[in-house]
Amino acid sequence: MTENTGSNKIDSFHKKKNKEEMQKQLISFALMIVFTILAFVVVATGMMDKMLVIPILLILAIVQVAFQFYYFMHMKHEGHEMASAMIYGGIWAAILAVAGLSTIVWW
């Protein structure tokens, strides 16, 4: 393998692994761009009813954030059990905080 004779002696197995990882990250980036454009187009053209648009926007955002966490921040890799526990704990408290604060205006 020519890769192994370069100035950086990383073994070719890990180099290949890193490359595969990078390709997955590039695909997730492309998808994130698509989701972003989709979200803006839906709002800018006003093509859908308000009741339909808001859930769609939220779903697009959640999918994008999942890509960010699992691919860009490597949460899909092993050894991220504690990291997942922290973030899901944070998300749980976040949902309570948003639910609590935003429902105050209803009473």
Partner: peptide, 26 residues
């Protein structure tokens, strides 16, 4: 550092959630 930083990010999630909740309320 890795574990500690994810712990910090969990806390940051709550910080921003409280600001989002305030925004949604107001």
């Amino acid at each position: 550092k890795f574990i500690g930083f994810w712990f910090f990010l969990g806390g940051e999630t709550v910080l921003f959630a409280s600001l989002f909740g305030t925004y949604l309320a107001l």
